[in-house]
């Protein structure tokens, strides 16, 4: 697995020839030229701009783990013809603007985007279906413990871009009586498109909580098991990636 580690502006990498990396201060450009998988670990209190480009016919898996504080993470993703990206993002946030723009420029390009976060977050995601037969699945899960989480997810299909498939799922669990917001926006100017969306904001499931507690597990630990399961289960990770996530972010809370 290829690895990029960015801790407070210091970048370390272990990359093979499938990935070409450029860094200029806060701007990181990742060009993926062949099938690959990449894990990015990002710890930052400063703004970061991330650009990811996938060449024609490339299949890539990216797993971004981040712990962010009072900053902006701006991501710009471009998919060319027949490229296919599985993008998993797990983030522990404290007052974060996470803005992503996904440009599906290539014919039959496909993205599966899974985002799980906890903490004060504004996720603004724009998916532009600029070519026909493009396919997007966007799944966002958030845990709010008295913080404000906003998911604003916009997908656009212009006229004459046909045969696209758009799926959007967002779910936020509020652990306290706070306010969270989901804005699912589908702007479609073409008839030949399949689209679906679902959005749920709810408290923790009290039946599940009761079941765990009825086996002797404290309320705090039961909530921890349920919320961790909710966040991790949303991501499509390999065993190795899951291991990394637990080692870096979950056991070391």
């Amino acid at each position: 697995m290829n690895i990029i580690n960015i801790e407070n502006s210091i970048l370390e990498k272990q990359l093979d020839s499938t990935i070409f990396l450029k860094q200029a201060k806060k701007n990181i450009i990742i060009n993926i030229i062949n099938n690959t998988s990449l894990c990015i670990n990002l710890l930052s209190k400063e703004d970061i701009n991330l650009e990811i480009n996938l060449n024609d016919n490339v299949e890539a898996k990216i797993f971004l783990m981040s712990k962010l504080e009072n900053n902006n993470l701006n991501s710009f993703i471009v998919l060319k013809n027949n490229s296919n990206l599985l993008f998993n993002h797990f983030s522990i946030n404290d007052n974060i603007n996470d803005t992503k723009e996904i440009n599906m420029n290539g014919l039959s390009s496909k993205i599966e985007y899974y985002y799980s976060c906890k903490g004060n977050t504004k996720q603004k995601l724009n998916v532009y279906h600029n070519s026909s037969k493009t396919d997007s699945l966007v799944s966002s899960n958030g845990i709010s413990n008295n913080e404000h989480i906003i998911f604003e997810i916009t997908e656009k299909v212009p006229k004459k871009v046909i045969g696209c498939n758009l799926n959007q799922k967002s779910r936020i669990i509020n652990l306290k009586d706070n306010i969270s917001t989901i804005k699912p926006i589908l702007l479609i100017d073409e008839q030949d498109v399949t689209a679906s969306h679902s959005s749920v904001i709810s408290p923790i499931n009290d039946k599940e909580l009761f079941y765990l507690m009825s086996r002797g597990i404290s309320k705090e630990e039961s909530i921890n098991l349920l919320t961790t399961g909710f966040l991790v289960n949303n991501l499509k990770l390999t065993k190795e990636e899951k291991h990394l996530l637990f080692e870096k972010y979950i056991f070391r809370r």
Partner: peptide, 14 residues
Amino acid sequence: SEIEGVNNVDFLKA
């Protein structure tokens, strides 16, 4: 209850 995302082993260990 069916609890998606929490595996049996982690639950039993807890």
